[in-house]
Measured scan of single mutants.
Amino acid sequence: KVKIAGPGLGSGVRARVLQSFTVDSSKAGLAPLEVRVLGPRGLVEPVNVVDNGDGTHTVTYTPSQEGPYMVSVKYADEEIPRSPFKVKVL
């Protein structure tokens, strides 16, 4: 029921550039959304989540370095389908 889309989860994500993606939970009811961005060697990146007021949230983060990242998206305390997402930061 929760959908996710945006360039911040795709290929070609650049280090030190603001990345974003949208989480659409409009068909999933009200529940807490939790997003974690883990970088190389367990680095935890700050994440900004904005409630758009229409059942969607815009998530932004800036990867601080190149390497493999994991983006975990939980809704109602459960990983959404395909989460955690593997993101290769260049």
Results as ranks from 00 to 15, higher is better:
Pro84Trp: 01
Gly29Val: 08
Val89Glu: 03
Val49Lys: 08
Leu9Glu: 02
Pro46Leu: 07
Gly42Val: 02
Gly53His: 13
Thr56Pro: 01
Glu34Arg: 12
Glu78Ile: 10
Tyr61Met: 00
Asp54Lys: 11
Ser83Pro: 02
Asp24Ala: 02
His57Cys: 07
Thr60Tyr: 08
Gln19Arg: 01
Phe85Ala: 05
Val2Tyr: 03
Thr58Ile: 10
Val71Asp: 00
Ala31His: 06
Thr22Val: 11
Pro46Lys: 11
Ser64Arg: 11
Val89Lys: 00
Lys86Met: 14
Pro7Ala: 12
Pro68Glu: 15
Ala28Phe: 01
Val2Gln: 00
Ile4Pro: 00
Arg16Thr: 14
Pro84Glu: 03
Val44Ile: 13
Val50Gln: 15
Lys3Ala: 07
Pro68Phe: 15
Lys88Asn: 15
Val23Glu: 01
Thr58Cys: 09
Gln65Leu: 11
Thr60Arg: 10
Lys74Ile: 07
Gly6Lys: 03
Ser11Met: 10
Thr58Gly: 10
Asp54Phe: 07
Val71Tyr: 02
Val71Lys: 00
Ser64Glu: 10
Ser26Thr: 09
Asp51Met: 10
Glu34His: 15
Val73Gln: 01
Glu34Ser: 13
Tyr75Thr: 02
Tyr69Leu: 09
Thr22Ile: 15
Asn52Gly: 07
Ser11Ile: 14
Glu79Cys: 06
Pro40Trp: 01
Ala76Gly: 13
Leu18Asn: 07
Val87Cys: 04
Gly42Asp: 13
Val49Tyr: 07
Ile80Met: 04
Thr56Asn: 09
Ser25Val: 15
Lys27Arg: 12
Leu33Trp: 04
Thr58His: 13
Gly67His: 01
Leu38Gly: 09
Asn52His: 12
Val73Trp: 01
Ala28Gly: 05
Asn52Thr: 05
Leu9Phe: 05
Ala76Gln: 10
Pro32Cys: 09
Val73Cys: 06
Val87Gln: 04
Gly10Glu: 13
Arg82Gly: 13
Leu33His: 04
Ser11Glu: 14
Gln65Trp: 06
Lys3Asn: 13
Gly6Ile: 04
Pro46Ser: 10
Val17Gln: 13
Pro81Trp: 03
Leu18Met: 12
Ala31Glu: 14
Asp24Trp: 05
Glu66Ile: 09
Gly53Leu: 13
Thr60Ala: 07
Arg14Glu: 14
Ser20Gly: 05
Glu45Trp: 05
Pro63Gln: 00
Val49Leu: 11
Arg16Phe: 07
Asn48Val: 10
Val13Pro: 03
Val50Gly: 09
Gly53Phe: 13
Ala15Asn: 04
Pro40Gln: 04
Lys1Asn: 06
Ala15Phe: 05
Leu90Gln: 11
Pro40Ile: 01
Met70His: 15
Pro84Asn: 02
Thr22Met: 10
Arg36Val: 12
Tyr75Val: 11
Lys88Gly: 11
Ser20Lys: 12
Val49Glu: 04
Pro84Phe: 01
Glu66Ser: 11
Gly29His: 10
Ser64Ala: 10
Thr62Gln: 06
Pro81Thr: 07
Thr60Ser: 11
Lys74Pro: 01
Tyr61Asn: 00
Pro84Gln: 03
Ile80Val: 11
Val71Pro: 00
Val37Leu: 08
Ala76Lys: 15
Lys1Tyr: 06
Val13Ser: 03
Val50Trp: 07
Gly10Asn: 11
Leu33Tyr: 00
Val49Trp: 06
Gly29Arg: 08
Pro32Tyr: 08
Pro32Met: 07
Tyr75Asn: 01
Arg14Pro: 05
Val23Thr: 00
Val35Met: 03
Ser20Pro: 03
